[in-house]
Amino acid sequence: MHARIIGVGNADRGDDAAGLLVARRLAGMGDDAVEFTGEALSLMDCWQNRDSVILVDAVVTGGRPGEIHYWDAIAERLPREAFRCSTHLFGVAEAVELARIFERLPSRLVIYGIEGAHFAPGAPPCRQVLEAVDALAERIHGEVNRCTAASA
């Protein structure tokens, strides 16, 4: 199953850039990855007509910076508080829940969260988050390739 990867975030708010950076790494490796900086309500359009979507965003759960979280958004509800680390009007969790209500979720929607700690305007992502970006990009790239090979 061909997967689209969506990296969500804000490049100018410290660790909130994590999702964008993962998407950028994966696009550089030739994967179908897009950086999403628009409002979360438009996410539904971003994954429209896609069967398999992997979404990456920064999260705040109280974990250690750079910790990687995983949710199967089809099987479980997302913890909304975890996705409120950005100043976005609506977060990823709200967009996913609205899509669930309106039956506009893809068949497979995996969410990866990278624990962030610093979201100051203009600040760069912290070292732990940058390390997590590299690790997660490799992990998703491998996962996507395995799925593609299996379905070929």
């Binding site: 309500l41 539904m44 709200e94 829940e97 609205l98 209500i101 309106f102």
Partner: peptide
């Protein structure tokens, strides 16, 4: 919030989108 609103006002939220 709007997600809770969809329980009773689903058509309105759909219209908004």
């Amino acid at each position: 919030d709007v997600i809770e609103m969809t329980k009773d006002y689903r058509a309105a939220v759909e219209k908004a989108l």
